[in-house]
Design a protein around this nucleic acid. Sequence first.
DNA 1: CATGAATGAGAGTTCATTCAT
DNA 2: GATGAATGAACTCTCATTCAT
Lengths: 218, 218, 218, 218
Amino acid sequence: MAKKAGSRAAVEAARPAPRSPRGLRTRTALVEAARTVFERDGYLEARITDITKEAGVAAGSFYTYFDSKEEIFEAVAAAVQEDMLHPRLRERLGEDDPLVLIDAANREYLLSYKRNARLMALFEQVAQIDDEFREVRRKRGAAFVRRNAKMIRRLQDAGRADPELDPLIAAHALSGMVGRMAYSVFVLNERIPFERLVTTLNQIWANALELDRQHTSR
Amino acid sequence: MAKKAGSRAAVEAARPAPRSPRGLRTRTALVEAARTVFERDGYLEARITDITKEAGVAAGSFYTYFDSKEEIFEAVAAAVQEDMLHPRLRERLGEDDPLVLIDAANREYLLSYKRNARLMALFEQVAQIDDEFREVRRKRGAAFVRRNAKMIRRLQDAGRADPELDPLIAAHALSGMVGRMAYSVFVLNERIPFERLVTTLNQIWANALELDRQHTSR
Amino acid sequence: MAKKAGSRAAVEAARPAPRSPRGLRTRTALVEAARTVFERDGYLEARITDITKEAGVAAGSFYTYFDSKEEIFEAVAAAVQEDMLHPRLRERLGEDDPLVLIDAANREYLLSYKRNARLMALFEQVAQIDDEFREVRRKRGAAFVRRNAKMIRRLQDAGRADPELDPLIAAHALSGMVGRMAYSVFVLNERIPFERLVTTLNQIWANALELDRQHTSR
Amino acid sequence: MAKKAGSRAAVEAARPAPRSPRGLRTRTALVEAARTVFERDGYLEARITDITKEAGVAAGSFYTYFDSKEEIFEAVAAAVQEDMLHPRLRERLGEDDPLVLIDAANREYLLSYKRNARLMALFEQVAQIDDEFREVRRKRGAAFVRRNAKMIRRLQDAGRADPELDPLIAAHALSGMVGRMAYSVFVLNERIPFERLVTTLNQIWANALELDRQHTSR
DNA sequence: CATGAATGAGAGTTCATTCAT
DNA sequence: GATGAATGAACTCTCATTCAT
C-alpha cells in the first residue's frame, strides 16, 4: 500500500548492520546505486525501483536495509562527509598567517565543492524538502561557523582584526558567502574563473576583518 | 474516457487572460488561494484540488487559467515581486553617502524578506525543483547584482573603494551573503537580533569595499 | 502525487515477459479478460479497470504487463491469428484443382470469420482508430494477397487463367471481396444463406479468372 | 455535467432550421468548421470546442443547432451525398453496352472516392463507432446493390450473363469489391496506378458475369 | 536473505454541457 | 440568439510497500 512520505511519526531504529558478507555486498551495492541514481535523476525523480534495478537486486531487497528514500539518502550523504571537511588547517600547514589560512580554507572548500557539485546540488535540494536532513546540515554548518568565529575572536584579541565586528555573525555571513558562491558557480554555472573567484573571496574576507590594519584592543 | 496525456500536440503558451470580470474574479481567487495553500502545505504537498477548494471553484476551473502547479506558482511569485524590489534608493532617499545607501538597502531587503519569509522559503524550495523557476530567479538576481556592481565600480573610480576588488564578483558575493543570512535567520530561525544582523552586514560591506579609506585611482 | 505524464523519457518497448509462473498466470488472465470485455463492451467503451476487475487482479497490475489498451488489444489479436490462417491448403488437401482450392479457402475463411465474428468486428473498429494496428493489419493482408497473386500467375502461365488480368490487383480485389462479404454477413447481419454465399463467391472467383476456358500463353 | 456519448435513449427531434439570417450563417459556419476539424483530427479526436473555435462562435452556440457530435457529423455527411451518387448512367450516356456502363460506373465511383478520400475514411471510421450512422450507410449501400442486381438480372434474362450467378449476392460482392479497393488505394495508400485499377476491376466484373459469352436462358 | 509480482489509494486532467449575462 | 466561464463525473496511471515462494 502506498504511503505518503514525510509523515515522520517516530524515528525508527536504524537497521542493524548486515551480518553476512552477502548482506554487506548488497547494502553497498544499494548505496552506490543510490548515489548514481540520485545524481542522474535528482532526489524527487529517483524511484526506489530505479535504485534496486541499478544495483541489480530485487525491489523487495531494498527494505532489508532501508526504510525509505530519506534513509538511503542519509547513507549516501554520510559516505561523502569526509571529503567536505577542512580539519586542522593550521596544524596541517604549520602556518599561522591568517591570509594563508583563509586562502587555503576557501580553496579547499571550493575545490571539493566543485568535485562533488552534483551531490552538493542534491544536498541543497533535499535540505529544502526533508526537515531532518536540513537540521543535520544546519548543525554541521553551525559547528563550522563556530570554529571560524573562534578564529576571528582570536585575531580581534590579538589586535589584528576589526574589533567592532560580531565574531559569530561575521563568521556566519562570510562562510555563507563562500558557500553561496560555490553554489552559484558550480551548480548554477555562473561563469566566473576559479582563480579570480578565490582571490576575490579571500580579499573580501581580509578586508571585512581588516586584517592588514592596526587595531587597538577592544 | 480520459485522454492520453501528450496526444494534443502544441505547447499552448499560457492561457489567455480572462475576458469577463467574472473570469478575472475567479483567476484572482485561484492565485490567492494558491498562496494560502502553498504557504500552509508547502509546494510539494499542495494539491490542485486543495487550491480550487480553497478558492471555492470546481476542480476543472483551474485548467481554465493554468496548466500546472508550476504555472500558478509563477503567478503567485510574480504577485510578490514588487515587495522585494528596492529600486532607486539614491533617488528616493536623496542621499549619496554609500554607508547610508548600503544600510537602507540591507535593511529594506531584510525587512521584506522577513515579511514574506514563508514565501521566500518556498521560492528556495521550488528553485531546487523546477528548472524554469530557478532560471527566472537566477536572471532576476543577476540584474540585481549588476546594479550593485555598477555602484562599486563608481566608488572605485571615485577613489572611495578598494580598487583591487572585482566589482562583479564582489557584488555577487556580498549580495549573496545578505540573501543567505536572511534565509538563515528568517527561514532556518537562526537566533540573531535584527539590529545586530543589519549592523554586522553593513560593516562587512563597508570593510570589504574599504569605504572609509583613501585609495589612489586604479 | 501523480507524475506528469511524459516526464519519464524513453519509450519502454513492450514489457518483459513474466519471469514466474504466477506472473504468466496473471498475464494470461488479463488477456482473456480483455477479450471478454472487448467483445462485450466494444473497444472504446472498454475500461482498463473493467479488464482488471474481470481478471480478478488489482488495477495497477495491468501496468505490469501492458502499457495501454492498444497494447493488450494487440495481444488479444495475436492470440486469434492462427485461427485465421489458411496455410498450405494445397499440401493439406493433396489437391491441385484450383476450383477445389478456392472453395476450401473461401469456406475456411468464412467459417472462421463467423466463429470470431465479434472479434473481427472489433478488428475493423480498432483499425479505424489505431494507426499502428491498421498498419499491422494491412501488412498481414498484403502477405495473404501476394500468396494469392502467385497462384493466379501460376495458373496464367499454365494457360488456365485469363492472361489479361493483373495478378496482384486481381488477387487484392477478389480477396477483399470475400473479406467484405464476410463483414456484411457476419457483422452487419446481411441475410445471406451460407452455402449460397460460398457458392456465389467461388463462382465469381472462377469466372473472374476464367478458369474453365482455354487460354493461350501470355 | 458531462454525459457519456452513445447512450442513445431516444431519437431527439432535430433542431428546427434557423429562422434568422444570422442563425443561418452561424449554422453554416458550424457545419463547415466541423468538416474541417473532422478531416483534420478524425472523428474521435474532434472536440466540440474545436469546432466552435474553428467556426469563430462561442462554445454554447453549438447547442443552438445541434445536440451532439453525431448530429453535426450527419449534417456534414448529408452535404456530401450528391457527389457520391451515380444516378441514371444509362440515360445520361445514352448507352446500352454493359461494358461501357460498368466502366463508367467504376470510373465515376473511384474518382469521386478519390476526391473525397479524407471524408470517406471518416465515414468508414464513424460507421464503426456509431450504430445509427452505420445503419443509414448500410441501407444506402443496399439500394445501390439492388440497382446493380436488377441490371445483372436483366443481362441474364437477355442471355448475356452467366445465368448461374445469384444476382443479388453477386451484385453485393462485386460492388463491395470496388468499394474496398477504393478504400485500400485512396485511404490506405496502396500503390496502384489508377488506370490499371479501373481496367482490372472492369475486367473482373466482365469476367465474373461472363459478359462476352453466349448463354442459354435459365 | 533474495525475489519480483501484486496491491490500491489517490492525484491529475479532460471536455460535453449548462446557464447567467 | 450569442457568449464563454463554470461545472464535475470519470478515467488513467504511478510507485512505495508487502509477502508468498
